[in-house]
Design a protein around this nucleic acid. Structure first.
Lengths: 141, 141
DNA sequence: GATTGACCTTCCAGTTACTGGAAGCCCTAA
DNA sequence: TTAGGGCTTCCAGTAACTGGAAGGTCAATC
């Protein structure tokens, strides 16, 4: 089948498929007219890539997974290890984002958000760590 | 001061500072020998950028924040709006990652992870949605 | 004065994973 | 035969740097 059919079946853009061929993830044969000719197996590979990329595996990880996929003798533990590592990575990213969100929320809450120019967000970015003291009343009203 | 001093004070790599100059985020003057000469104000700007980037603002958002920073008449509501939008973005990313993590965990848990080649992770990636039937016993053993 | 070594400069290329666009075949239907 | 759509390759651009090469500058040392 032609590239557009493969694209439709694999839910990948045509451009992406050409790119995957360029970096050696798929190797469709060519018809006499020079068009790429995808087999059902090629489409399977593309679908595999589409799913793995959607799960956050990098291209290089996909390459590894693909060789495990094609290796009828691989140990499932190898695949599981890759998946566990990816889970840990995702967890780290989540934690980073959560703490980032906390900082942003603190800033947003401190900002009155009106027409006045005073802005604790800008002040914080500028390095004026507001301190925001007065735990026992003593500052401004 | 020279670029390495500015780098130390702003906690930014030298290369990054040169890049920021290239894209117009800082404009240090030049000494007679051609070296960049950073003022304390320039370093303030660099620190500002370092913090804002660390909080996940893109370069273009940093540019906006910077012009708000430099605009003594800006309304704090403008800054707050940018921050709120960023919070929403971070929340979306967190949700995506959480659901991604759930999928990966489901796969990892289903995988026995031993020397045998059968692997539900690979099967899933390959599109064999395991179905995982046999709820009333009937299959092997 | 010469040399060493750190620091500075510019410029080019590479990273990740595509995406857009131009120029130009190929194929089918009207 | 012409129009259209699909296909090809190749080049460039994205985001935000990072690495490296080639070469100028400076301060200290011999």
């Amino acid at each position: 089948m032609n590239i557009s059919a493969a694209a439709e079946l694999s839910h990948l853009p045509v451009k992406t498929i050409r790119y995957y061929e360029e970096i050696g993830l798929v190797e469709p044969t060519r018809s006499s007219n020079g068009y790429r000719d995808f087999t059902d197996q090629d489409v399977q590979t593309l679908k595999f890539l589409q799913r793995a990329r959607g799960l956050g595996f990098s291209i290089e990880e996909c390459r590894d997974l693909l060789s495990l996929y094609e290796d009828r003798n691989r140990a499932s533990s190898d695949v599981k290890a890759l998946t566990r590592a990816k889970i840990a990575e995702v967890e780290r990213k989540i934690e980073e984002l959560v703490s980032l969100k906390r900082v942003l929320e603190t800033l947003a809450e401190a900002c009155h958000g009106d027409e006045r120019p005073e802005c604790p967000i800008i002040d914080d970015l500028a390095g004026k760590i507001a301190q925001d003291p007065a735990p026992e009343g003593q500052g401004r009203k």
